[in-house]
Simulated assay, not measured.
Amino acid sequence: MKIRVIDFETTGTPDDEVKAICEVGYTDLTDDWVVHDPVGFLVNPGHPIPPETRAVHHISDADVADAVTPTHALKVLMDGMVDGDAFAAHNAAFEQAFFGGGNYPWICTYKCAQHLFPDAPRHTNQVLRYWLGGLNDQLDQSKAMPPHRAAPDSYVTAHILSRLVFASNVPELIRLTTAPVLLKKVTFGKHRGSLWQNLPADYLQWIAYKSDLGPDEKHTARHYLGGR
């Protein structure tokens, strides 16, 4: 099988009214668990790139003036995909807002890292790059830099995915991608930095049944309430 790890640079977030892809990167991880060379190319989004997003990736309107269309770019991502393959991305929900990936399953390396590497200080691909022992030393730095560009980020994420595969297996990673995460530390509010297991029961009750927090927070609160 092949897992195609993708990364997009865009002109906006999925919640923005105007947004499109302005760069595509992908790196294939094949079933011998070899990370292949990254592929990247610019995309003409069809509208100006706002300064807020240009400040992240530094891609200009002039850079993309003669680039391919988003429709063409997404067709390229499907080239060579066969039954049994999968797509992956770090925070896959972001990429999926721009590209559905047909009927192929997805692996979210961010969610899977939260499940399998709960002690990491953060779960961004750049933090995991340095936190996972020896991973950065395995990278060809000419392919891994600079960050916040599509091809290098896909290459780093593919190496993180290889660690996740060895820690688990592909079917389990696909399952974990949509499974709620049992969180370790609180990242919000008056108990920020505390362990979830040490939160007062009344606060857990509020999170689980009255708050507008996300499914991971609600799942974690219910988990620790169940043990009391």
Rank of each mutant, 00 (worst) to 15 (best):
I3Y: 04
I6V: 13
D7T: 02
F8G: 11
T10Y: 09
T11P: 07
T13P: 11
T13M: 08
D16Y: 03
V18A: 14
K19R: 15
E23R: 00
G25S: 11
D32W: 04
V34I: 08
V34N: 09
V35S: 03
F41Y: 14
I49E: 10
P50M: 00
T53D: 04
I59S: 08
D61G: 09
V64K: 05
A65K: 14
A67Y: 09
V68L: 15
T71W: 09
A73G: 15
A73S: 12
K75H: 15
M78L: 15
D79C: 07
G80N: 13
G80V: 10
D83M: 04
G84T: 14
A89R: 06
F94E: 14
Q96V: 07
A97V: 10
G101V: 00
N103G: 11
Y104S: 03
P105N: 10
I107N: 11
T109E: 10
Y110F: 12
K111L: 02
C112E: 12
H115A: 02
L116M: 01
D119M: 00
D119F: 02
P121T: 00
Y130H: 14
L132T: 07
L132D: 10
G134E: 11
L135M: 05
L135N: 06
N136V: 10
N136E: 15
D137Q: 15
Q141I: 11
K143T: 06
A144H: 14
P146Y: 11
P147Y: 09
P147F: 11
H148M: 05
R149H: 14
R149N: 06
A158P: 06
A158R: 01
H159W: 14
S162C: 00
S162M: 02
F166R: 08
F166C: 07
P171H: 09
E172V: 14
R175C: 01
T177N: 05
V181Q: 02
K185T: 13
V186H: 04
G189E: 11
G193V: 11
G193A: 03
W196R: 12
Q197L: 03
L199M: 11
L199V: 14
L199I: 08
D202M: 03
Y203F: 13
Q205S: 09
I207C: 13
A208H: 10
S211P: 00
L213D: 04
H219T: 12
H219M: 00
R222H: 03
Y224Q: 06
Y224L: 02
G226I: 01
